[in-house]
Every structure is written in structure tokens, then in C-alpha cells.
Amino acid sequence: MKKSLVALAALAVAGVASAQSSVTLFGVVDAAVSGYSNKSENRFGSATTSRTALTSSGYNSSRLGFRGTEDLGGGLAASFWLEAGINNDEGIGTATGGGLQFNRRSTVSLSGNFGEVRLGRDYTPTFWNDTVFDPFGTNGVGTNLISTASGKNTPGSFQNGFVANKNYSRASNSVGYFLPPNLGGFYGQVMYAFNEKDKYDPAALTPDAPDSQRAGRYIGGRVGYANGPLDVALAYGESTIGDDYFAGATTTQNTWNLGASYDFGVAKVFGEYSNNKVKTDWKNPADASGLSDPGANGWLLGATVPVGPGLIRASYSAVEYRNVVAPGLKDPEAYKFALGYVHNLSKRTALYTSVAYLRNKNGANLTVGGPDYAGDINGHSLTPKSSTGYDFGIRHSF
């Protein structure tokens, strides 16, 4: 439960906690029984891969965090936020290697009438629209296909698509600025994330290795308006996902998305459109002859309906790839319908269930989660067709 000047554990993590105006320990523990069934087929037959598992983060992402604020006077405040993802079904962190690391957010900031300057690891501006305007909040089998196609919840994703972006949801080594909250409903942010690569002089000493000079950088921004029942936001980001220094090539993933929601009281409706393109710039334009820029367009329509202490959630999302197959072939596509219900036992505890059905066309290979598709039958390759799944779980926040 939330406390000010909390517990010895929080004070130890915060360092010089006695100087803080407030320190809070917070978190979410979310566990679910989840099932997945992914079917692929060819003219010789079909194959299904399935899994039943105890999972975490089916409704809200499980996490453990510490945050604090010190009033510096004159309208200034210094703050810190350390938040670690946890896989509570296995008792480990979500970071690579399973250790407990502050991989969700790790920032220190200074705020005042000018807004907030924030340094560290944080959400990217372009990810906010994907999660804020999704009735399922990019969690569980209901996660929208815009997010899934970017690498979330799917082990493979389209192999020629736009998934090699480690800065999709969060960026490390970032400097961000947020507008102050007193602008009549307008809000916004910008972010720049350093790639922290070594530079060499003379340039001939640069290692002849891929992704050694420019990969990892992110720059983006988001602006929106929220007033009463309406919330609408536009975001753009450019993430450098690859480079070849001596070939003079730099590959970026450029994303822009527009999302909105409107609360009618009896129901809240959501919508989002996202455009993603992977673009390679060449020092010598002749090297790019005949090459095309792969990408994808995605969209979502959804709604939540309050029912007593509960909430019905529904969404329909789609992704259409571009320039990822040979000319003359049909572009891969995927469509998904998700339906769920959340029953609030209190302000902090809820039971939930979600089901989802996904249909692939023309070679797309997205899933609602779980195992990847079977690759072949007796040496004959299989084409991914459909994926279904469910979550039934409990979420407790503190």
C-alpha cells in the first residue's frame, strides 16, 4: 500500500531519502492462466502448436517501483523513478537474464513552471499512442496488432517486416522534455536517446562491423489535447536500427501515429492509425537502386463499457505490410478481434478474462502469444493461418 516516508527498504533504495519530501513504494502483481493455439497449413495438411501456461501481466504489467519527490522551493521539484518489470509467475525480473533490473523506467528529473526535464530510460513518445488508445493497454492476448507487429507478444513477427527496433516501447540513455500541465488541456513531449557509440579519428580506424556507429539512436515527439471526454494525440519518432559505416548505409524506422478516445459515459470509444516504414539511406544513391522500403500500416477501433463494478473491453485491429514480398505477390495482412471483461473487487484488486482471434493472410505470421507456428510437414513448408488465445487472471496493485 502507498505510504509517504515509507519503510526502511524504500529509504535504502532512494539513497539520501531523508532529504525527500516524499518516497513511495508501489507495484502491480498480475497473474493469469493463459492458453494459445496457433494453426498453420499447406495443401498437404495443417499443424497446430499450442500451450497452456501460468503467465504474468495479462491485464496490467507486473512491476515493482520506487519514486520520490523533493520540493526545492520556488516552484522547482526534483524527482526520481525506478521501476522494474517482474515475471511473478516465475519469481524473476523481466530483464534479460531474469534478474531484477529497473528496465521499465529509470529516471531522474527536474520540474517547474517550465515543464519537466527527464533523464534516463523511459517510454518513447510513439509508444504512448499504441498503449493509451488500446482498450487492452498492450497487455495479454488482447494486445492490438499495431503493437504485435512491432514485436510485442509474437515470437517471430514477419521476418521481413519492421520489428528490429529495440526502442519500440522504451529508450535508454534518453533526455526528455514534457510540457507543463497547465496549458488548457494541451500536452506534449520530445525525446532524444543517445546511441553512445565510439567515434574514431582518423575515420579509417572505425571497426568494420555492422551497427557500430549510428544504431540505437532515437528522436521523437508527441503532442495532444485532453479535455473532458476527449483525448487525441499525434506522435512521430525516428529510431536508427542499423548502420554500415564503410558502405555508407543508415537504416531507420520512421513511425507516426494518431490516436483518439471519447468517453460518452455509457461507453468509451478508441481509435488509432499507425504508419511504419523502414528506410535505408545510402551515401551513394546508386547503391540503393532497385531496393524498396518495407513497412506497415495499422489501425484499431475499440470500446470499453462500464457494467456495475466491471468493464467490458473490445477491439478490432489490423496490420497491412508493404514492400516485404516480391513484386506481383499479395501483401501480407493480419486481422484481430479481442473481447474481455474486468471485474473490480476493490480499487486495487480485479479479476479479468480476455479472448482473442487473429487471422493471417498472404504469409503474415503474427500470433496472440504463445509458441511460434509449425514450420513444415514432411519437408513441405506451412503458411501461418490463425491464432487464438485466452487469459483468466487476477491483478493486485499497491
Rank of each mutant, 00 (worst) to 15 (best):
A286I: 13
W282A: 11
T154Q: 02
I92Q: 15
G237F: 03
L82P: 09
L119W: 04
D198V: 07
Y123M: 09
F162K: 02
S381H: 15
T240H: 06
V223C: 07
A7T: 12
V307R: 03
V132A: 14
E320I: 14
I312N: 06
L76S: 09
A350L: 10
L64N: 01
G98N: 09
A10S: 07
G328E: 06
N165I: 00
Y218N: 11
G340K: 04
S4L: 12
F102R: 01
H380L: 14
T55S: 14
D391F: 00
I241D: 02
S292K: 11
S315H: 08
K277W: 00
E333S: 12
G242V: 06
G216M: 11
Y123D: 10
R313M: 13
F66R: 01
V6F: 03
G185K: 10
G308V: 04
G58I: 06
G379F: 11
Y218Q: 11
G340N: 06
D134M: 08
S109H: 07
R43P: 13
A204C: 12
L110P: 12
E320K: 11
A149G: 12
K330T: 10
S34D: 10
G142A: 09
T107R: 03
I312M: 13
R313F: 02
P294E: 01
R222W: 03
F392K: 01
N297M: 12
E272P: 12
G151R: 00
K336L: 14
T250V: 14
Q253S: 04
Q20L: 14
V108A: 10
S79A: 13
T96K: 15
D376G: 11
A164I: 01
V190R: 02
K2V: 15
D293C: 04
G27P: 03
A356F: 00
G98R: 03
P371W: 03
F158H: 01
A164Q: 07
A204S: 15
T96V: 15
T138S: 08
Y262M: 05
D372K: 15
R170M: 06
P135A: 04
S174Q: 04
L358T: 00
S157W: 00
P327T: 00
E41H: 13
T367M: 05
N323Y: 02
Y390C: 04
D244N: 11
V223N: 05
W282S: 08
S169Y: 05
